[in-house]
Design a binder for these strands. Structure first.
Lengths: 241, 241
DNA sequence: GCCGATTTGTCCGTATGTATC
DNA sequence: CGATACATACGGACAAATCGG
């Protein structure tokens, strides 16, 4: 399944870096060398390398080369800087995921919710509360709001498995990007109850609020993910322009 | 000061989007049109648009066009997905920043610290504790570790102003990228004291741990930023590949 | 300190593929 | 089906930074 050339090269280099083919701080082969090994154009190779830069795997230095700055330790990453469903990230880390639907309902967006979520007033939505377990432990309490128009036929059964799987494979929707805000908020009684938290222990938690867009440019989902504070980790790499 | 063509186009389009020249969900002029207005090549224009995509400003849709998905509200953003010093971000938001140095010392990295920070053992470092105020309110307690070899001549006076200013303008260092991890941790007595927090109110806080690299590929800084939970916001945009 | 070789950065033009309408 | 729009890929030219002689 060759996707695109630059993506194949990107994956190959990424794997080589993770496999320690190049040691930390070592320079990768030069562009010209890599162009020959992959038998591609300069632009294509540079594109692949550019992806590695944004991943924080390598650093390019003009006049010198491309330096490997990858360090494992991110191996236990749970929430990383990509759009990834709970199922996907759990699988990737070889953990047993489980999802419990606490509430499945639908209604219209009122003024307050419109302000909070970014949906337009009166839009019809599904509202779902779900509890996500990893290895039998409840870690995340999700409040999902899905635009009914974009996600027709959503059921409780689907919500118990993977909604994203339904969106991508059944509805043929393409998820493109997701704007997120991370904040720290006080825990509520609901959090305390379902995530088995004790306010004496932790009285606040990590909250990730996100707006997700599909390839039609429609914001079809607003989600508030409430994370157990002791299991929350968010990885990021910032590149200065 | 024209930097590069693609960057100028990027800034211009970004400003136009922020100025509401294009309304939400509207398609921007097509690539070909923009190529003519900016009188540049296709590659160059696409590069500028690509930056807007990673910023979450626009979305490209094959066969259709480039859609504006920018919404203000991020205007009060404090911590955003870029490398930006405390001073810079404060200025950008028109707030009065102040920095108080609580501790300025130097020592060698021991085994534990090496594990935590990623510095090599026995490396000589500066360790600085700083309290950052915004409009007279203490918001962030920073624990900075700087590699002495890369940051010679650091003083308490510099730390009271802007260390980054010193690095870039005096030492001519170029900061390239920064790997960050966001977690939620319990507050300590020190946090409580300096950030004027009350454990009955909030007993945990947002912690951003970061490793920062310069253009020589050297990790010259490790910083743990401890944020008042009620003022912490981290913005991010994730693009699916 | 200069020069030349190497390496990455920017930019251009063109051709072809693919999705939308 | 054709026109339009973005996506991928190639090749070439010159600039800028690094490094060794």
């Amino acid at each position: 399944m060759p996707k695109s050339i630059y993506e194949n090269i990107y994956r190959d280099l990424k794997e080589k870096i993770e496999n320690n083919t190049f040691s930390y701080q070592e320079l990768l082969p030069s562009e010209n060398t890599l162009i020959q090994t992959y038998n591609c154009s300069r632009n294509t190779l540079r594109r692949a390398v550019g992806l590695l830069v944004t991943d924080g795997y390598v650093q390019t230095i003009q006049g010198k080369g491309v330096r490997n700055i990858y360090r494992p330790a991110e191996q236990t990453a749970f929430t990383i800087g990509e759009i990834e469903s709970f199922q996907e990230s759990a699988m990737r880390n070889g953990q047993k995921p489980k999802t419990r639907v606490l509430l499945f309902t639908e209604f219209r967006v009122d003024k307050n919710l419109a302000l909070k979520t970014g949906f337009s007033e009166n839009a019809e939505i599904y509202y779902i509360q779900r509890l996500h377990y990893l290895d039998e432990q409840p870690l995340i309490l999700n409040h999902n709001y899905f635009l009914k128009e974009s996600v027709p036929g959503l059921t409780k059964e689907i919500a118990e498995n993977s909604i994203y799987n339904y969106l991508e494979n059944e509805l043929n929707m393409t998820i493109v990007n997701s704007k997120r805000i991370i904040t720290v908020e006080k825990i509520t009684e609901i959090d305390e109850k379902y995530l088995k938290l004790n306010a004496k222990d932790y009285n606040c938690m990590a909250v990730v609020s996100s707006q997700t867009f599909n390839s039609s440019g429609i914001m079809f989902e607003y989600t508030q993910s409430r994370h157990r504070p002791d299991y929350f980790r968010f990885y990021d790499n910032a590149v200065r322009k």
